Computed example of a mutant assay.
Amino acid sequence: MATEKFDVQAEVTKSIVAAIEAGCPPWRQPWVGDAGGAMLPLRSNGEAYRGINVLLLWARASEMGYTSAYWFTFKQAQEKGAHVRKGEKSATVVKFGTVEKENEDGDETRLSYARAYRVFNVDQIQGLPTEFYGKPAQLPRDLGTVSIPELDAFFADTGARIVQNPDDARAYYAPATDHINMPLISTFFSAERYYGVLAHEVTHWTGAKTRLDRFSNARTKDVYGFEELVAEIGACMIAAQLGVLPDFEQSSAYVTHWLEAIRGDKRLIFKAATEAQKAVDFVFDCGKESRGEAA
């Protein structure tokens, strides 16, 4: 009897939809546990995951309460002299790549593929070196309303024109004038929330025609809703790399809208994560160029 082909995109979409239905969109709560810090999930060699895999592992960590950033395959754990505890269930991540294939004319054609593979969080593994089990440092829970110079410098290095406007208590990116409007930081409950919102707007800023040209190249029917999804994911990726815990309080109507869109298109979350990763890379590369570092 023929086995049913594993549909990577459908399985990933199902996982994301389940997280949203449970009240925990994975990009809204990037880390849980007693440490409470935001961090990107890491491979066994310390390399950060990217794109859709960040969302998948954030969702699984949130669901299970894992506190380690590291994820190993079964074999990688064995190679370290460790073992996955009996009964532990793996998380799914996706490997993207290309393969050369000869067509009927004898010419080589490059084909793209997506392949699922399984990983385990360090919390599920016994016998690893002690450094993998270290829990993330506590982030301050109340930063007040005072700006953080290092984060101000980071966002300034992007080159984005950011205006704190005492007369306009809205956060938005204005394409016509190519500037970001932010309420005064003193009006935010914490500095973390301010920089989380700013990261969201900076992600929008990357979509301008002179940058990634995301708006004119949009391929979805609901361009606005898709762009908001990209900005939410991108903002959390930026915040995670900066060590800031994002805390967006978008309306339940927005989340419901995105959920319906994701249900209707199993490729949508892949598209959004891909565009968000491009935006994040652009933002960090701007900073490197501003400091004279190699991008």
Rank of each mutant, 00 (worst) to 15 (best):
V84C: 11
R110Q: 11
A77T: 05
I20P: 08
V202F: 02
T220G: 13
Q164A: 13
G106E: 06
F155L: 00
D213Q: 02
E232Q: 07
E131V: 14
E79Q: 04
N165D: 14
F226E: 02
L111A: 09
E275T: 09
I148L: 07
K14V: 06
D107T: 14
A174N: 09
I185G: 14
N181C: 15
I262F: 09
E227Y: 01
Q76C: 04
L55T: 06
W27E: 09
L143H: 08
D123Q: 06
Q164D: 02
Y224S: 05
E192P: 09
F132W: 10
I148K: 04
A294C: 11
I16L: 02
D152H: 08
Y254I: 04
R291K: 08
R43L: 14
L56P: 00
R115K: 13
G127E: 13
V197H: 02
R50P: 15
L40W: 15
D285E: 10
W58V: 04
R60C: 03
N45W: 01
A156Y: 12
A59G: 06
P129G: 11
E21A: 06
R291A: 09
V146F: 07
D142G: 13
Q124W: 00
V8F: 10
L111Y: 04
F284C: 11
D281Q: 04
Q126P: 12
E79C: 03
E260L: 08
A59L: 05
N121I: 09
E232S: 07
P246V: 13
G292C: 07
V99K: 07
L55R: 05
G37A: 07
T203C: 03
A156W: 03
T73R: 11
D247F: 15
G37C: 14
K89Q: 10
W71R: 01
A77N: 11
L184N: 03
A82Y: 00
T145E: 11
Q76V: 07
S15C: 05
Y194M: 01
W27N: 13
W31N: 12
A18E: 14
K209E: 12
A38V: 12
